[in-house]
Computed example of a mutant assay.
Amino acid sequence: MSTTRTRTRVEDVCPTSGLCPICVKECPVLCEVSLSAFRGREALYPDPNMFGNSTAGALKDYGLDWSHFNIQARLLGAFGIKEDSDLAIFPNVDVETSVGGVPLKIPVMIGAYGSTDVARQNWDGLAIGGALSGIIVTIGENVCGMDVETRIEKGKVVHSRELKRRVEAFRKFWDGQYGDVAVQTNVEDQRLGVDIYAISKLEVNIIERKWGQGAKAIGGEVRVGDLQKAILLKKRGYIVIPDPEDTEVQEAFKQGVFKTFERHSRVGMP
C-alpha cells in the first residue's frame, strides 16, 4: 500500500506514470491515478492528518544505492600527519575546514529547518548537537512570520520569541569559534525585515538568502488548522489558499468542508 493508501492491480508499475503496464477499464483496484481523478486533494498531500508529526522521503529507485559502494582505506603510509605509529592514531585525525571564512570542526552543515512543527519540535537537539560539533546550523524560512507572538511595527519585525529561542539554543553551547548559527530569509522574510532584526537584535553573523525552493519546486507549504491564524498569515503577506478572509470560505471551514488552509511561500528570484 502506498502513502496515499492506494494499490495497483499489478506490482510492476510504470515508473514514469505510476500506471500498471496495462490499465484496464473495469479495474477493481483503487490506484493513486484513479484516486486523483475522483478525490484529487487526498492525493496531492498524502496523509494530511500527520502534518507536523511526519517528514517526507523521495521514493526513487535508480537501481543503485550507497550500499553498493565500499570505501577501502589505504593499508600503508599516512597523509596529513607524520608517519609515526604513536602519532597516526584516530584522536589525532584533523578534519577541520572552513566555509565562507567560518571554521568548522568537521566538514558538515545542517540545512535550513524553518517554521514547520517538525523543525520547531526538534530544534533543540539539532542546535545543541551542532554547536557542540562545531558546525553551521541554519534556521530556515518563515520562523518569524509563523510565530503568532511576533511583534511587527510598520511592517517590520521588532521581536520574535521563536527566532530568539532558536538562536539562543545554539549559542548556549557554542564555543564562539567553530561553526555558527545562520538565518535563512525568503521573499516574505525580507519584506518583514527578518534579516535586519536577526543581525541587529540577535547578533546573528550569517544570513542565507533563499532563491527558489530547493527540494520543492512549489512554494514552501504549511497547513494551518486555525482560521484566525490563517487570516493573520495573509495579513502578514503570505499566500493563503483558500482565501481565509472570504466569508463563504470561512463558513465552509466552520462546517468542516475542509480542515486546513495552505500557506505558501513565494519563490525568490535572483
Rank of each mutant, 00 (worst) to 15 (best):
I239V: 09
S115Q: 06
G57R: 13
G18D: 10
G212I: 03
V240T: 09
V10E: 11
E188G: 03
F170N: 01
S133L: 05
D47W: 08
E96V: 09
P270W: 02
F38R: 15
T185M: 09
D180G: 07
I207G: 07
L192Q: 04
V183M: 13
Q121Y: 12
A127N: 04
D61M: 01
G134N: 03
A43P: 11
A131D: 03
W66I: 14
C27N: 02
G193Y: 06
I207A: 11
G130F: 06
E83Q: 15
A58S: 09
K82G: 01
G214P: 08
P103V: 05
I199Y: 05
D84Q: 02
G80V: 00
G80T: 00
D84H: 09
A119I: 00
V181Y: 05
T4C: 10
G212S: 01
D226N: 14
L132D: 04
L132I: 09
L64P: 05
K210N: 15
R41S: 11
G52A: 02
Q255E: 14
F69I: 14
V249Q: 08
L202S: 04
R263C: 14
I106A: 14
R209T: 09
G129R: 00
I241D: 06
L30C: 03
F90D: 13
F170C: 00
D195I: 08
A73V: 07
K259Y: 11
M50V: 09
